[in-house]
Amino acid sequence: MSKRQLVVFVEIALTLALGVVLGSLKIWQMPQGGSISLGMLPVLVLALRRGPLVGVAAGALGGLLGLIVEPPFIVHPVQFILDYPVAFAAVGLAGLFSASWRSSARTQAWSRGIALAVIPGVATGALLRYAAHVVSGIVYFADYAQGQPVILYSAIYNSYVLVSALLCMGAAILVLPALERVVPSENERS
């Protein structure tokens, strides 16, 4: 294991810790039980700096850690797979835009980086996570409640993810350029 790999490895670990802490700061409690927090933000930031592979690994491990730290939400085996590893790993796919972010950061073209990397990256990660939760809801309800408009139920029930995503997008726009100025991702590039 090289030093660079080790740094990435530790960054993933500390990202998970920050994710748990930010996730516990509930900014807004939704009436139906979901809560809005910035828990996704660390994985999004790491994915945009380090690429999709690191992002997906951090996301999947975050799902695993979430199971240990908070009371798990398990009502069905398929629902469990989709709501934990798959949904959280999907957030890491924000890293698909990391090349674009790094090239913008190199020239300090912040608004270009925000428009071409941060916004599409966060949107991709968050929408894929939302999709995983919605599909998990459909699987669950289709098994228990035949003949109901299951897609609608699931889409509404999971909508809190989208609100969280909007907040994360705003926060990522603030955090990433500031972070890049102090700790550039370029010189420790993976």
Binding site: K3, L167, A171, L179, V183
Partner: peptide
Amino acid sequence: GPIARARAYAPVLVPLFVNLFRRADDLAT
């Protein structure tokens, strides 16, 4: 509202992330 609350977190988030990436480097060393 949620937006005002999230905005209040900005000065907290930036140092948290800066510390994270600096600490990762130290810990790896």
